[in-house]
Design a protein around this nucleic acid. Structure first.
Length: 416
RNA sequence: GUGACUGUAGCUCAGCUGGUUAGAGCGCCAGGCUGUGGCCCUGGAGGCCGGGGGUUCGAGUCCCCUCAGUCACCCCA
């Protein structure tokens, strides 16, 4: 097989696609209930949209993006996530000058990262995400978390947990990072290589280390070093979550991968998922819009991995619309005419284009899920009729209808 | 980018220590049960044994390289 699909990508055939459509319907329904309107942005953006504003220290930008030049020598990048493009679109449309808050969502947004494929991880995956621009209020953080909790409940995901943290803002984070560095400086020689690098480039990620557990356990906690405003924001958010009945735990080591987060960060994890157990990540990014050249517009959002959602969802039984009618005939011209009459009447009809035996056609009819088979061969032709045979109701007997009536009035003749 | 395991018919897999025409189940096609699906029976088609190189009288079986899949690290959704 020399024409294989690229590594880390998937083909979705109709059986599986039905689950996707069901999932998409759930996502759209929730977004609507929470007041988020759909935003569709390009699959690729100018590279600097991601490189400059997602944070150069993030691994995703450093080594995982698909970068290319087009024939006009423009430097472009396939989007590795949805937020940067949403912010870009928000600014380009001048929405910051319009009515705020502006709440936008995206469904089945394709995202590309050059990574080694693994359970729950692809090079092209899809996200459902929501972004709320223009509100710094904790009710916005709370509603985003609630939306996801509702989503998981609706999908029948049993085993999930909400992890929450606050990592401060430009007012209090510098002091915290100093405290963190002071704590780590003497420990540094004994730590892993990654941590040594993080110490200089991205100290917050030190908390993320899975190897140097003891060091992390004794480290100063972000939530203990918040300024008054951040602390109040965090406390209010937790109160709101309690009010609306969302269980959550504070994870003092939760910092998230992208640099743009401020204050609230959250993550939903599932025990059903394997090593890549994060279903969703999100948080507040009050500085991002401004850093992308806009006015200071606070914002918050999340993104869920839809493939991961699909593996943990239990309520998405695939209700793939079965065929309504299968036309079995030894004459393709007649079969086509009957199918067209049925199709134009709004029914799902199909036939056998391969001139197989009546027996084979009946088997195909059975497999197709059609509720009725129309049979038309020599004996029927002599009498100017067709047989209408029910396939799904054991008791029902087959009957004959006039061929001309079937073509003229297919719905009634077939009993649909 | 690192590591482990795997790669034989459309699908799921057998093929012992290298040895004659590579097998099974399911699926598919044709036929039988007297034009009509599901059950049963008979027959049939279908395999550069992932690809390349090597060792050997001889390789699906051993060695090397490569590609792909799976899982883990890293990171993230």
């Amino acid at each position: 097989m020399d024409l294989a699909r690229p590594r880390g990508t998937e083909d979705v055939f109709p059986e599986a696609a039905a689950r996707w459509r069901a999932l998409e319907a759930v996502c759209h329904g929730l977004a609507r209930r929470y007041g988020y309107g759909e935003l569709r942005t390009p699959t690729f953006e100018h590279s600097e949209v991601f490189h400059r504003f997602l944070g150069d220290a993030t691994d995703v930008v450093q080594k995982e993006t698909y970068d290319f030049k087009d024939r006009g020598e423009r430097e472009l990048t396939l989007r590795p996530e949805g937020t940067a493009g949403a912010v870009r679109a928000f600014l380009q449309a001048g929405l910051q000058g319009g009515a705020l808050p502006r709440k936008l969502c995206y469904v089945t947004l394709s995202a590309f990262r050059y990574e080694r494929p693994q359970a729950g991880r692809l090079r092209e995956h899809h996200q459902f995400g929501c972004e709320a621009f223009g509100s710094a209020d904790p009710t916005t953080d709370a509603e985003l978390i609630a939306l996801v909790a509702d989503l998981l409940r609706e999908l029948g995901v049993r085993d999930f947990a909400v992890r929450l943290n606050s990592i401060g803002d430009p007012a209090c984070r510098p002091a915290y990072l100093e405290a963190l560095r002071d704590y780590y400086r003497p420990l540094l020689p004994g730590l892993c290589h990654d941590c040594q690098v993080r110490f200089d480039h991205n100290p917050l990620r030190l908390l993320d280390c899975k190897k140097d557990r003891e060091a992390v356990a004794g480290a100063p906690r972000p939530a203990d070093h918040l300024c008054a405003d951040c602390a109040a924001h965090f406390a209010t958010l937790r109160g709101y979550l309690d009010d609306i009945g969302i269980d959550h735990t504070i994870d003092h080591t939760l910092v998230r991968g992208f640099d743009y987060y401020t204050r609230t960060v959250f993550e939903f994890v599932s025990g059903e998922l394997g090593a890549q157990n994060s279903i969703l990540g999100g948080g507040r990014y009050d500085g991002l819009v401004e850093s992308m050249g806009g006015p200071p517009v606070p914002a918050a959002g999340f993104a869920v991995g839809m493939e991961r959602l699909l593996t943990v969802a239990s309520t998405l039984a695939a209700p793939d619309p079965a065929l309504d009618v299968y036309v079995a005939s030894d004459d393709r011209r007649e079969a086509l005419a009957a199918c067209q009459a049925l199709r134009r009447a709004g029914l799902a009809a199909d036939m056998d284009p391969l001139s197989r035996s009546l027996r084979a056609q009946m088997r195909a009819a059975d497999r197709s899920g059609a509720s009725v088979a129309v049979i038309r061969a020599a004996p029927e032709r002599e009498r100017g009729v067709a047989v209408v045979r029910p396939l799904r109701s054991p008791g029902a007997a087959q009957r004959e209808v006039a061929w001309t009536a079937l073509l003229a009035d297919p719905r009634d003749q077939v009993g649909a």
